[in-house]
């Protein structure tokens, strides 16, 4: 099996792990970590797609943009977490997001 196929399969499973983490996350920071893992999978898949179609530079260029966008998202998520813990004293998602109606 060529390594591109293995990476394709690997990216799917990393994505699945991230999704699983997102579903079981009870803490805002844990959710951010799970999202990070999902982004890693998407980035890997972009570069794999670039490599498979003979445009490795294109894949890398897309991945750089993804890293920048994703870092911004992480920073925002962390800022929210800091604010939340300052004003609520908890990061527990079930307490923060009480289901209403």
């Amino acid at each position: 099996m060529p390594s591109v196929h293995m990476l394709f399969i690997g990216a799917w499973f990393v994505l699945g792990t991230g999704l699983y983490g997102l579903m079981i996350a009870r803490n805002v920071l844990k959710a951010v970590i799970a999202l990070q893992i999902m982004v890693k999978a998407a980035m890997l898949m972009l570069v794999v797609a670039g490599a498979q179609t003979g445009q490795l530079a294109l894949g890398q260029s897309l991945a750089i943009t993804v890293i920048a966008a994703d870092t911004m998202a992480v920073v925002i998520g962390l800022a929210m977490a800091v604010r939340l813990s300052a004003s609520m004293g908890t990061l527990d998602l079930e307490e923060i997001i009480e289901p209403e109606g």
Partner: peptide, 25 residues
């Protein structure tokens, strides 16, 4: 509310990104 919005939006846009990678592939 915005934390909920943030987590759902980011996960959505990552799924879109994965889809884009498949289309590129």
């Amino acid at each position: 509310a915005s934390t909920k919005y943030f987590i759902q939006t980011v996960s959505g846009s990552i799924l879109v990104l994965f889809g884009i990678a498949l289309v590129l592939m």
